[in-house]
Amino acid sequence: MRKFTAIVAATLLLGLLAAGSAFAAEVIQGKCLELNKEAKTLSIEEYDINFDKDFKFGHPTGINTTVDITTAKVGIEPVPGDILRISYVVNGDKKAAIKVMNITKQNLMKK
């Protein structure tokens, strides 16, 4: 009986582990260019991960990316110019955003 319980528990845990690692969302960060409310899309200019004093959020790369935000959870509404961080999964030819975080306006240090 004990062995059985242990096996069930182990299977459940492994299942969880697998479920967790199967889909890892991509993350991009950059400056908001446009929020299109009709088409439910959001465009940003991607920044890289070389942070320094003058470029706290990374250097602009010149790559513009558009994500679909139909099913996304959007935090504080972005306006052009805000620095955003977006997690998305590639769905066919579309990049479907999961979460959109507004780094400029979100203050994590406050309650």
């Binding site: 967790g20 690692s21 960060q29 961080r85």
Partner: peptide
């Protein structure tokens, strides 16, 4: 709270795993 963890700067490992999740 809508927060996206910055997984671009994390090396694969425990931290990366939790942040991805």
């Amino acid at each position: 709270l809508v927060v996206v963890a910055d997984t671009r700067v994390l090396a694969p490992g425990l931290n990366r795993y939790f942040a991805d999740l």
